[in-house]
Every structure is written in C-alpha cells, then in structure tokens.
Design a protein around this nucleic acid. Structure first.
Length: 217
DNA sequence: TCTCTCGTGGACAGATCACT
DNA sequence: AGTGATCTGTCCACGAGAGA
C-alpha cells in the first residue's frame, strides 16, 4: 500500500494518469493473439504477484479472460460456428512445457491418436516428461505427465518419436498389417537422419519394424 | 508422510468518483 | 461538504501440488 501511495503521489506530481496493474495487464493481453495461454508469471514485471493474481482473477470475473486450469488463463478465440473456443489440451500441454522448460513426448493412447492410428481422442493425454510428474485437470479432460529417462525423450524426429511410443502402446506381436502400413507411410515422411538417430533409441523389436521404412531397408 | 510453496478467494483498507 | 459506490491493492486462511 505504501508503494502504491508513493507511486500515486508521484504520478499526481508529474500530472500523469494513474494506471492500475489491472489495466496494464489488460493492455498486455490485448496485444497478444486470442487463444494464447496466459500465466501469472508473464505479468510479473507489471506488479506484485498478489496484484497480478487478483487482476487476472477480476478479469476472469469480468469475462475478459477464462481460467483453463490452476494458474493458467486464456483469452478464448472467436469462432463463427463454435462461439468462443479455448485452447486445446494439446496446446495447453505445449505451453506448460515451454513455461517450465521441460520436454514432452506424447505416449499411450494419445500417441496412437496423434499418429492417426486411432480415431478415438483420449480424455486423458499422457506425456513422458523430464520435469516433475503431475496431473493437470482441464474440465472433463486431463493431462498426465509421467517422469521418464532422458533416453526416452531424446528422439529428434517428430514422427519417429510418436511411432516409438505408439508401438510401445500397441505391444510386441500385436501390430496389425494395416497399422504397420500406416506407420511405414508416416515414417517415409520423416527426415532420414533423424530416423536413423531415433531407431537406435528404440527397443530392438521396434527397431526392426522401423528399419523396414528406410530407403535401403 | 511431512513440509514448503504457490494459487485461490474472501475480507478489508485506502483512495477516487458520482451524486445530492 | 458529506456520503455511499466503486476501484485497486494487501492480508490471511485454505487447499493442492511438489519436493524431501
């Protein structure tokens, strides 16, 4: 309060209008794209953590932003057909990874759906991470982060990384011909250098499957 | 399991604004 | 000038999650 009063008096002396932290945050948010995720940390420089927190809380009450999870806010995108659209669970997971500087690799049923091997979109997105394991609830859906070894996260290729996790989920000797054909088609699109690098990280039975997609294989 | 940290919401206080 | 409404920020208690 003392700081606030001092600032207030200073502004009066300088004939400047007093700008609240809330309006500063609002301005800052208005400069961001709709659908972008907002973390209280993003506004740390604009005021005390308490003031930032309260400002976001009030902006949520006002309907200017929406809270998607603990400590995560977003300004919904506007869609002609669906009205206001909040970021997807995938986008939220990626934003959390960026904020916490951690790596995430989709795994389990979510890896299958990400590759198009399953049409079912799981309610629970499971990722392997080198950060702290935890579960983030987003309404009906949730994001589960499972701690893993650095080896499982060091795959370079976006597709091959998913393929390894999808094959783990399907299980040895349970891969159908149709699934294998789809995986081969996907791996053909992968960068050959990345693919070679990632094959070495996979279990032997997965290596054998992935090697079939190599040009000389 | 315990402790610490952080996010959340309510209560409250100081200041301005609007109205009489 | 007085008074109540409103705005803005702090304090505090509680709960959930993270780390030891």
């Amino acid at each position: 309060m003392e700081n606030y009063c001092n600032k207030y008096l200073l502004n009066l002396l300088q004939n400047k209008p007093v700008e609240s932290i809330e309006s500063k945050i609002k301005k800052s948010i208005s400069r961001k794209k709709r659908g972008e995720l907002l973390f209280p940390d993003d506004f740390r420089g604009l005021g005390s953590s308490e003031a930032v927190r309260l400002a976001l809380h009030r902006l949520e009450k006002e309907g200017y932003v929406q809270r998607v999870a603990q400590g995560i806010y977003a300004r919904p995108k506007k869609s002609k057909y669906a009205g206001e659209v909040l970021p997807t669970a995938e986008e939220i997971a990626m934003a959390i990874a960026k904020r916490d500087k951690i790596r995430l690799v989709p795994t389990g049923a979510y890896a299958l759906s990400a590759l198009g091997l399953s049409t079912q979109v799981p309610m629970k997105l499971v990722f392997l991470t080198d950060g702290a394991p935890r579960e983030i609830k987003l309404g009906k859906r949730s994001i589960k982060l499972k701690k893993t070894t650095p080896k499982n996260l060091s795959a370079k290729g976006g597709i091959s990384r998913l393929v390894i996790q999808a094959l783990r989920e399907i299980g040895k000797d349970r891969l159908t011909e149709e699934e294998e054909a789809k995986i081969m088609a996907l791996l053909k699109k992968e960068d050959q250098k990345d693919l070679l690098h990632d094959i070495e990280l996979a279990p032997v039975w997965i290596q054998k499957i992935m090697e079939k997609s190599l040009d000389n294989g």
